[in-house]
Design a protein around this nucleic acid. Sequence first.
DNA 1: TTGAAAGCGCTAACAG
DNA 2: CTGTTAGCGCTTTCAA
Lengths: 352, 352
Amino acid sequence: MGSRIIGIKDVAVAAGVSVTTVSHVLNDVPYARVSPETRNKVRSAAEQLGYRPNRQAQALRTQRTGMLGLVCEDIATTPHAGRIILGAEEAAKARGYNLLIINTPGSRSVDSRQADVGALLNRRVDGILYATMHHRKVELPAAMRSVPAVLVGSEAGESEVPAVIPDEEGGVRDAVQALLDAGHTRMGFIHNADDVPQNRQLLQVFRATLDEAGLDGGAAPVESGVPEAHGGYEAARRILSRKDGADMPTALFCCNDRMAMGAYRGAAELGLAIPGDLSVVGFADQELIAESLHPALTTVELPHYGMGARAAGLLIDAVEGTDLSLMAAHPATVGCTLVARGSVTAPRGPAT
Amino acid sequence: MGSRIIGIKDVAVAAGVSVTTVSHVLNDVPYARVSPETRNKVRSAAEQLGYRPNRQAQALRTQRTGMLGLVCEDIATTPHAGRIILGAEEAAKARGYNLLIINTPGSRSVDSRQADVGALLNRRVDGILYATMHHRKVELPAAMRSVPAVLVGSEAGESEVPAVIPDEEGGVRDAVQALLDAGHTRMGFIHNADDVPQNRQLLQVFRATLDEAGLDGGAAPVESGVPEAHGGYEAARRILSRKDGADMPTALFCCNDRMAMGAYRGAAELGLAIPGDLSVVGFADQELIAESLHPALTTVELPHYGMGARAAGLLIDAVEGTDLSLMAAHPATVGCTLVARGSVTAPRGPAT
DNA sequence: TTGAAAGCGCTAACAG
DNA sequence: CTGTTAGCGCTTTCAA
């Protein structure tokens, strides 16, 4: 137990070769012509000594750190954060990269975010993943332009940074289609009152899908509320007590699962059983809630893991030379999946 | 736009001084004696050129990377992951460190986890944070012993690795006390049927707290179920339909919030209003659920953020020379907070 | 087939 | 007060 840290030199000595040879062997340098015996000697010496290549030193020499920066704008605050991180981490690891993670408050000044990105740049990350929670246009720290970058979950304003976003439109279509397929023709829409573009779009797609099915999307009852259980509760009560009889919707599309949870309660209070009297689909929010509800909520899952993985893959492509500039204008989109659980069934036959 | 990357040398030239001086100024080396004018010249030259110290090079030279490895055992899978990561990240950042994150499947072989830790070691992280989700003894990859390490959320088996764990015992006591304070004397315990030590302990503490209050903890009704909403539902039904009248519990302690959610439904079906007829407290699970329930669930919050921050702080202390070996035998504990919401109130007066 | 040697960008003795 | 210089551990010409 003498020398604490052993380097390539120690391996070279132990194997009776030069450091060059060790480097060639251990890195499988293609043009290196080393005899098999020598290779073995080197490898076993390295193993024996427990040699750990110092990636800092390698990086200094090769100008490649093999590290990707993941800057999360408030992301680690939401329950979905972990999935994005996990997706990015596994995709990165699979290609030999590691993730340097940094949280940056989106609320704070651009300067503070600059500094966070700067820290990553000082560490010479090969590229940067910039993740945000709410799918919207985002203003990027200027410093980011000096390395390849990919946005996760939102698009950049005017810049030409490629982005990976969820295909929410497809998700809404799938959800509505599931209701249509079950035989529903009158469905209500419970809207998130937060006025972000994303939310407006959900409603548009909802209506368009109805129109395309030959129904009147514009006529569908819509109510908004705060994006919490009680907002959903109130909105549901309003929709469901508008009028009785033939016009009452037999299904509800809720903009997020918490609101759906509230809708459950609203329906229960009005004596409506789910899914017998009322089918419900949720959207993109909380798997945990969806599964815990009774009956379990059929909902659309946002592909957090997939977006993380996809973005990391693209970023590595860019780092390794692929030109992503074509992608900048046209974000990559990853599909949402409709998870069918127990809250959708066929509507009751027309009232007698 | 000639030279792309500018180094300390460029700054030295621009400022008309030597690299030593630049290094001294930029790093605020205490024993360096540099005139204020020179300092200014250096600083503005650096600023001007947009100089970014190359931390890889610094690290190579100083043998300190300023990076902490965070290995998460399956952690990024759970919704709590983000809070631990966030806590660790912010604490690290505050002291000038960054986090290299790596997910490692706890289910897979020790070898695979060794490899993950190895990747961190190759990058010469200054220390390692090892986080697990379920508070239990954990078997650590041997390689970890070569750098300072701190466990988050679980204790090590026989090794002498310091750990940071939640004070669940205190959390249970607080919850029971809240019920006691509200005037409850008969409370049921809804147990997680998973047979992990943690769960057994919760019940013990529950009983002990009751005993200490002069009640008979052993007599409290206990029912177990799978740790999901339906498990809680079934357990609640069993407890609440055991017998009527004076012996029926007026409050329920649930081992996690999903089970509490099920208990709500069970109570509702039996015609019991919460909190009027039945008070409920949850434990350590899902803030999102707790807030969305109606009435909102009073529950005990596990200090994920705090554990992450605390662990990072300790690790950095160790990295910077503090001896943590005393701590190894005695894990640091961070308190859980009882979040009072709407599910606890005084019991109804004794039945007429 | 293998080895010697020149740096990657920076810090820290040691000299002035 | 400031500058020279020797590495940190590794890769990669270039030469043998």
